[in-house]
Amino acid sequence: MSTPLIQISQLEKFFSTNESWLSQWRIDSGKLKRKKDSVHALNGINLTINKGETLCVVGETGCGKSTLARVIMGLTPATSGEVHYQDQRIDHLNDRQRMLFRRRMQMIFQNPYASLNPRMTVYQTLYEPISFHNPQLSTAQVDEQIQTLLESVGISASSIDDYPHEFSGGQRQRISIARALSVEPDFIIADEPLSALDVSVQAQVLNLMMDKQEERNLTYLFITHDLAVVEHFATRVAVMYLGRICELASTRVLFSAPKHPYTKALLSAIPRLDNNTTQPIRLIGEVPTQMDNPIGCVFQARCPYANQRCYTESPNMIRQTDNSSVACHAVDEGRL
């Protein structure tokens, strides 16, 4: 039986687009009205991440994947909703209280060229988190830890005093992984860690992440838009669209029997080596912005199966027979 590590309930995050008081005033049919505009980045997310699993979050640019990661980490405060780590609520903590959880949750960012401090050597980059979270350790002990850590991610000890610009992209991403692992976390959020890397280097980094998971029983929340990686790496997959989760299923189920029309289109769009005959399902229309949050299903504008109900009523996540959950009226009504 899998035990939940992170539980997220009804998480919402709005970003205000007209922060200053003056810009909130509009003239509407001759009257002066005050209106706050906001972007609905997360729109009621419910999600449970189990211990030891790899949960992949996929979706297009702007669907709120990265915001979800940042809200869970506490880098951005949530507008409403709760995040629980095991049985403690962590979304409303102040910085000092959160420090305890920073040890257990770490993050790997997309661009290793930007996430490492260019003016710190590898040694300094790793020394800081270890000594900060373990003040009882002597310098020699910390040094020893850094050595073993670097070895375990395949960076030679001779380059310990080198600066980030002296490493290649893959090596830099391995240093970021070493930094995340340095405080011995249980849970790692990786926000598109592979998208800045080449195919062969992607394989190196992915292998390293899988090895570490096996060694330390890590839990990953893996954010990506590369579905080939997801198919290989994930235990479960959550598909996001415009701030909502539209399908949540185990990897095998999702890839063999996608249910939501968006998931179907997404999967058909993966360029594969073997099937050059199948045409991708074309989604007509552009992605709506999160400013004009539509009534009803968020996918209505691009969905080929949308009917009257989809324009008026927002679908809820409904559990299917094969243990996946889908938020779609068409699936619910058996039209699909």
Partner: peptide, 19 residues
């Protein structure tokens, strides 16, 4: 090597064949 490094070339959950 380039083709073998693709995730779809390895069994799910197994190590990828890196160069």
């Amino acid at each position: 090597g380039l083709l073998n490094a693709l995730p779809q070339m390895a069994l799910p959950g197994q190590r990828l064949n890196q160069i």
